[in-house]
Amino acid sequence: MTDNPSTPDTISQEVFDRQEADGSALPLAADDRLDRHTRVDLLKQERAIAAKYQGGPMWGYVVAALGGFAVWLALFPLTMFGVVHPLITLVVSTFLTVAGYVTCHEAMHDNIAKRGSRYRWANQLVGEVSLLPIAVPFSMGRVTHLEHHKHCNHPEKDPDYTDEAPNWWMAWYKTWWNRQPRVDGTINRYKTVCMALDTRESRIALKQTMVVQLIYLATLFTMAWNGYAIAAAVCWWLPRQLGLSYIRYFLSWAPHHPREGQTERYVQANIFKSHVGHFLSMCMETHLIHHLHPGIPNHKTRAAYLEMKPILEKRGVDCSAL
């Protein structure tokens, strides 16, 4: 589960190569007085730091994903038979739903185990089990999240652009609004993006989404009509609603606000100070590092940021928050 730490992550490599091939200037956030030599040198320094933080043991994510999924599953019978109080179930299940996205997010970027690794199965397994609490298959999460990275903050091509809102309370409202049956947000937008992509992966994602959603709804209906409606509500339905809002707010709105026009490399995401702290905001305070180098595991982005900070400041990145 330890991959070569010197291997650059594919997305930042792709961006770097494209810029080199185009012969265009490397995009800057603010300070465009830097000459090309300085910019390339800064990028090399940035990538050298990033390489130090990529890879490393990822067993913690595997244990967290499988353990969390097991606890989440166990809550169903434990709540149905009155062993665990519904309110405790609601809190624990919501936490596990949010935490599941964090572990799945690593799998989306192949950070648990790269393609070709003998532990590749673990990457797939973590991805598959982690997203079930939000009733979305790994395939859909992965396809759309990688599109988000490729077209970050593009109004039509970024599947997460619909989370944009003018302020924090509108952002929370939007997380709920985007889940309405015929509103073009979250899963509806994801389906549209997958249909437009029309690749083998996106077609599989659409089919699996349909299956997972049918299983989710059939489970709720069956439990409800057999006398376990409250258990179904606190195990899956409410945690999914609350968890999705929390995930959309901290993983999509807060690190990318404001989105309009912020498509260049160093302005795609922010460095910000969260009121609930680094851990409870899912390490999103340093989300820019994730967009620059997705191969850096989530728990290392803060340390990588602190080492990269002088370079980012020279790039014109606003690092005043942390």
Partner: peptide, 13 residues
């Protein structure tokens, strides 16, 4: 379907 399949028994229970 969600209304009669889930909300209805949830209200009753």
């Amino acid at each position: 379907l969600f209304g009669i399949g889930f909300i209805a028994p949830l209200i009753a229970q």
